[in-house]
Design a protein around this nucleic acid. Structure first.
Length: 575
RNA sequence: GCCCCUGUAGUUCAAUUGGAUAGAACAUCUCCCUGCGGAGGAGAAGGUUCCCCGUUCAAAUCGGGGCAGGGGCACCA
């Protein structure tokens, strides 16, 4: 990567300079970035400001001093170094070098070494017996994209779907089934009917608070392996998994491990024993808690007064299992903002049990999906938007548009494309926005394919793809990729932008924010469309220039495809 | 009440983590189809970055104090 090269050069030279001038810098201070305007060069650093203060010179004077020193030792890949008011150091890269990097952009993937210790990413994690709704989508999509970005850089990833398949909620569902359920009816449409039962429970409990107690008793019976309850639970779980798999298949997601809370119920006693050994447990109102005052956190409940476990207890057990079996370097929990306190508690407890733990535990939080009243969706109140319905409607809307644009396509092709667009739009909608902020779910916006940014990306790809397909494969040759044939400002600009691909992806990974990368793809696409509009490719008379332009767009289109695939989005040859 | 997150154009969001003139899309208004795909391109208009004070070469970004919205806070997950 160019920034890496520049970084090394700069660091080395500055270290030499340190001998004559007294100043201290840190590696992160270099902060090499692409300046806002091409007149300021290809790359820039604000390091001068940090140094000037220490050597008691004005920033601009310092910049001049440093740039003169750097020029004396200038490596061949740098064309020009400039000191600019108020104190920036701007670098211009040699075109020859740009072209070489550009040609090799897709080749040197092997540079990234395979990492031995895996990273576990826990994401999606739906609750059994409740259909997947729009709220699960963020975890699923962000988690999957992070996994793909890590894999691009050759990390070993374990995709973990941690199912919510245990707990008092099943007591609620079992009692609801026993009171109002009908086996035959449920078999017809399991997921929706189970949801209705769950919602009926929460309606009834308002008038009949005793139901809560009954639910806890049913859960306790489940824990004690009551045959009837186990049977009901297994049935519900099977039906739910079937339903989830349908959606995962559509989204193109495959988990390495699908293990839920129930799988760790058996280890709960061990966890409590360990906590007791470490003298961390305290009894309070008949329940067991871990006080966390030293972390400035409220106490964490480990065991209820009826001696059943909680989500936290089982999660601790699952964490022990993960550490023991996989020795991961990191565990990422892709779970919403609202669980922040929970994860602070979980991480604090593990810190008390294993202070020397090397594995990094990270809660990758994201904003809630809100309804148009800017409030959280509530499953209990029946105010929920099913993922399946969203996809279905999105597909229908897309189909209508496709029918007007491509009436000549077969119905099968129209429908397939519509589904692909619906999925792409759903994914991109999540990935383009900042992780931290809440996302408003607006039916109209969701299906607004006019000027939708993912459509824009796919359209651009398809357009260039069409041009490339018009000439024979043989004619597209990377040997034309050089400054003699490609020297228009927009062409150089395109090449430079494309070269930022890995840097941005890496930044996206460091920040664990896919949206950094999505907005980069949009910038690149924007430039591509300007190119398409202003520069002739097939119509260019000079054969060498024409071939060079073909090679250029061919390479960039490949990058665009790769970028979209990292986001889990398939490109379309026609749209 | 305590803790956490957020506040940017009429709306939905960006802003390379403290950097150069705060950018896109939608909506509004011009212009470009004899053209490689118009789901496009060129342009106009739209801003006290919620408010006040501070930190420094530099603040949407950091600190303090307000205001507004959201989320969380022991027998749910």
């Amino acid at each position: 990567m160019i920034t890496e090269k520049l970084n090394n050069f700069l660091l080395k030279q500055l270290q030499k300079l340190q001998k004559d001038h007294q100043f201290q810098i840190e590696k992160n201070d270099l902060n090499i970035t692409v300046p806002p305007d091409p007149q300021f060069g290809d790359y820039t650093t604000p390091i001068v400001f940090k140094i000037s203060k220490q050597i008691n010179k004005s920033p601009f004077e310092t910049a001049q001093l440093i740039s003169n020193y750097l020029l004396a030792n200038k490596p061949s890949f740098i064309k020009k170094i400039e000191a600019k008011e108020p104190g920036y150091l701007n670098f211009f890269i040699e075109e020859k070098f740009l072209f070489r990097e550009f040609k090799n952009l897709l080749k040197n993937k092997k540079r990234f070494q395979k990492k031995q210790q895996p990273i576990i990413i826990e994401y999606s994690s739906p609750n059994i017996a409740k259909p997947m709704h729009i709220g699960h989508l963020r975890s699923t999509i962000i988690g999957e994209t992070l996994a793909r970005i890590y894999e691009f850089f050759n990390f070993r990833i374990i995709r973990w779907n941690y199912l919510g398949d245990w707990g008092t909620q099943f007591g609620k569902l079992i009692i609801a089934y026993k009171l109002w359920g009908n086996k035959k009816e449920i078999q017809k449409d399991p997921i929706n009917n189970l949801l209705k039962l769950y919602q009926k429970f929460h309606q009834e409990v308002k008038n009949n608070p005793q139901l809560e107690e009954m639910a806890r008793k049913e859960f306790k019976k489940l824990v004690l392996k009551d045959k009837t309850n186990i049977k009901i639970w297994q049935w519900f779980k099977k039906e739910s998994l079937k339903d989830f798999q349908k959606i995962y298949r559509l989204l193109g997601i495959k988990f390495d491990i699908i293990k839920g809370e129930a799988d760790f119920e058996k280890d709960v006693k061990k966890i409590i024993r360990i906590l007791k050994q470490k003298n961390l447990l305290k009894e309070s109102e008949g329940a067991l808690i871990v006080p966390l005052e030293q972390f400035n956190l409220p106490p964490a409940l480990i065991q209820k007064s009826d001696e059943t476990s909680l989500y936290l207890t089982r999660d601790l057990a699952s964490l022990f299992y993960r550490l023991k079996h996989y020795h991961p370097s990191k565990i990422l929990y892709v779970v919403g903002n609202e669980q922040e306190l929970y994860f602070k508690q979980l991480f604090s407890i593990i810190n008390l049990i294993i202070p020397e733990l090397k594995t990094k535990l990270i809660h990758i939080k994201f904003g809630l999906v809100l309804n148009t009243n800017k409030k959280k969706f509530s499953t209990r109140e029946g105010e929920l938007i099913l993922l399946e319905d969203v996809l279905k409607e999105a597909q229908e809307k897309a189909l209508k548009i496709i029918k007007t644009k491509h009436p000549e396509w077969s119905i099968k092709k129209q429908e397939k494309t519509a589904l692909q667009l619906a999925i792409a739009a759903l994914k991109f909608n999540d990935l383009k926005s900042n992780r931290a902020t809440n996302l408003m779910f607006d039916w109209d916006k969701m299906y607004d394919y006019k000027n939708n940014s993912i459509i824009y990306l796919l359209y651009t790809y398809a357009r260039f793809n069409k041009i490339i397909k018009k000439v024979s494969r043989k004619k597209i040759n990377s040997r034309y990729l050089n400054y003699d044939y490609l020297n228009l400002p927009i062409e150089i600009n395109l090449i430079k932008q494309t070269l930022n691909f890995k840097e941005i992806l890496l930044k996206s990974l460091e920040d664990l924010s896919p949206n950094i990368f999505t907005s980069y793809l949009l910038v690149l696409t924007d430039l591509l469309n300007k190119y398409y509009e202003t520069i002739p490719i097939l119509k260019e008379n000079n054969q060498k220039i024409r071939n060079a332009r073909l090679a250029l767009i061919n390479q960039i289109n490949k990058i665009l495809k790769l970028g979209l695939n990292i986001l889990g989005i398939e490109t379309l040859n026609e749209i």
